[in-house]
Nucleic acid binder design. Structure first.
Lengths: 148, 148
DNA sequence: TGTTTTTAGTGCGATATCGTACTATACAGT
DNA sequence: ACTGTATAGTACGATATCGCACTAAAAACA
């Protein structure tokens, strides 16, 4: 692979890294003090996808180490935003359930983020996003297969 | 903004977050023990873009807090991968220079990453990346303007 | 059924990341 | 030149993230 092509792929991951950084900072500025993107992401996922998932499922959904998810969940639980109950199907496992407080927290965050997303949508309309996401998904799926 | 559109934009940032996570894990698995993406990124940037930049410039390039960059640079300097010299044009500032050891470190990392990138290129050719990057750049630039 | 292997979650220690507050220098306005 | 303001870098403390090692339960298998 020539160095120019190499550079292209690096710029891809670099661009992604910067957007991740910027979006995280921006999102976090809209969250209550002491809360981070990681906290919001989990709550949002529980609503968007499914309630009652296991910690492992959540860790896999974000491709994070189990141990990181354990920590994040413990913070959410300490604040009463989620409940951890034993998994009736597996004695080793648990299920993560949103509390009403957790749902409210997420909805309020969404409301705070809405103006920003609306502004983004003006310059970068949904059709443009639709054109972008499949490519990203393809890359993600490839990288998913690679890690072994 | 209806909830479906909202969901679309969240999935965009979610996908980006997961790719960031996956690429970081993958890249770090190819680095010597104790080194992280952040370390490699700085070295790579110093070669790809320009040697002798100030810490602030570097922080801005990655959109990271100054204080994070200070820490990263101190690690790199401790390992002899960079040198920090006073900025002749500004008494408050410094300039970051790569050492030979730092260049070697970066080049060896690149070599280790090359096979992965080559495999990625098979499934996701440079033309596809070229099609993706401008959209990402546009989003980044928009977010850049937003933070104020 | 007893044994071995795999898997879910966690405790712990090391380091990264980040916000706040501070110092020293540069710059702007007078 | 003098004074007030802005800027570059850092020290420090709090928390996040992560790898490793461990426990307990499940699953595989003899």
């Amino acid at each position: 692979m020539d160095s120019k092509t190499l550079s292209l792929y690096f710029s891809l991951f670099n661009e992604i890294g910067i957007i991740e950084q910027l979006s995280r900072t921006l999102f976090e500025s809209q969250l209550p003090d002491g809360f981070l993107m990681s906290h919001f992401s989990v709550l949002n996922h529980l609503i968007r996808v499914q309630d009652g998932q296991t910690p492992l499922k959540l860790a896999q959904a974000f491709q994070l180490p189990k141990t990181t998810m354990t920590h994040t969940l413990s913070v959410l639980e300490k604040h009463g935003l989620i409940e951890m109950r034993p998994n009736p199907k597996d004695g080793r496992s648990k299920c993560v359930w949103l509390t009403t407080k957790g749902q409210d927290f997420r909805n309020e965050a969404i409301e705070k983020l809405a103006p920003f997303l609306a502004t983004l949508a003006e310059q970068f309309p949904p059709e443009a996003v639709n054109q972008l996401v499949p490519g990203l998904t393809e890359i993600r799926q490839f990288m998913d297969k690679q890690r072994d």
